[in-house]
Design a protein around this nucleic acid. Structure first.
Lengths: 227, 227
DNA sequence: TTAATAGTGTCTGTAAGACAATATATC
DNA sequence: GATATATTGTCTTACAGACACTATTAA
């Protein structure tokens, strides 16, 4: 019976900002199959070590990043006979976000712009596509992109980020009202970013982690999508 | 290594209408653990038989219902050391809908009103709660509830159903415009339901299966949430 | 003082919801 | 014709988006 159980793995789509655009972490695999090929970080579930698959995802991400992700949510579960050459497999996929400012050295070379993804092994192209779409969709009605920025940021930085992710321009005035006044997604820190030759901008941080809504999404306002 | 692989199961939350309200299928388990206790239908993934976990879900649903579900989507994946007494387990949960009119005899006795659920084994209470919430949420902006009705229905039947599921009253005039004119979720069959002592209602059917949006939900209009 | 961006005020179009009015079947 | 629901018309209001205007800093 043990013999007939599917392989259980976890794959993580980790995003960070790369030159202002969205980057996906695709390190080269250090083991077969597909050794040396760029792929989503992943690994087997370790039943003696992990409490659940979210735990596996955090472990995998920490191993690759050298730090904890600032946001993690379950994306979708991919399964089937053909997706992994090792046999019938179940891959629970997660979506994670990290502020690029917190990353160091070699990891940065594994960040690939999401609109220039190389061919990927397994069904990682489908997983990556679903992750990008989820992130884009949620960006239109939540403060999710905030997790890609460091702790403090100006509204311009946040707005530009939304624009880069969703691909549509936003009016600075209306953006401010939505994010600060109407939805209270971010709150002023009281400090300001000074330097350039013009009026300095107030610095903001993400408000209570539970607040994610920007526009009205589906159903009542809830924290993340997680169980 | 085989020894250390988690158990892989699929659980299905199957909904059908019960006295106009929402009913969840909870048959009694015919095997240990929890033999004789009401629980979500579920089963092991059969690697020789199922192409993927959606296939497993369809097989499990068909076994219990004696028919195919009219709608199925992946809900969430539950995992961990403690949720199943048999050991570390991964349960891919699915949400399914069936028109009650298509159900026969004994199955109907396993339908339980969702607001009167008994205590459930494993973490099935959490799965059921998430399924109900997903269905309620999607009902506010999609034609999902249509899959709970038979092939043809009046707008009143559909509207009443939305009201029962979401718990809020809807204006018949505005509902019609949304569903028929604006979103084209349903289309007239040309036939009418006659009988009661008043103007007969036109009969409608769900429009192209891909159309699911009612109000603007998150992101662009897409078919179901599935991969 | 100027340049450049931060931030505020105000208008307009769209669409959801409230509600009145009309249509059409059976009895 | 009476009745009850189907269906259409019209108005109001909330709100997102467009855009003009004012504020404030460094050079």
């Amino acid at each position: 019976m043990e013999f007939d159980t599917p392989i259980a793995t976890v794959d993580v789509a980790l995003f960070a900002l790369l030159d202002g655009g969205l980057g996906l972490l695709l390190p080269r695999r250090d083991k077969p199959p597909y050794e040396g090929v760029r792929a989503l970080p992943g690994g087997f579930v370790r039943v003696n070590e992990d409490d659940d698959t979210a735990d596996t995802a955090r472990r995998v991400a920490r191993d690759k990043l050298g730090m904890d992700v600032s946001y993690l949510e379950q994306l979708y579960t991919f399964s089937g006979r053909a997706r992994d050459p090792r046999g019938w497999s179940i891959a629970v996929a997660y979506l994670g976000l990290v502020p690029a400012a917190h990353l160091h050295g070699p990891v940065l070379h594994d960040l690939v712009p999401v609109d220039r993804l190389p061919p990927l092994p397994f069904d990682h192209a489908a997983i990556a596509a679903k992750a990008v779409r989820r992130l884009r969709d949620k960006s239109t009605y939540s403060s999710l992109p905030g997790f890609l920025l460091p702790g403090e940021f100006t509204l311009q930085e946040l707005r530009t980020l939304y624009e880069r992710i969703t691909g549509e321009a936003l009016d600075p005035a209306n953006f401010r009202r939505q994010v600060v006044d109407a939805q209270r997604l971010v709150e002023a820190t009281g400090r300001r970013r000074t330097g350039p030759a013009h009026r300095p901008a107030e610095l903001y941080r993400l408000a209570a982690p539970g607040r994610l809504l920007l526009r009205d999404g589906p159903g009542p306002a809830r924290p993340a999508d997680d169980a």
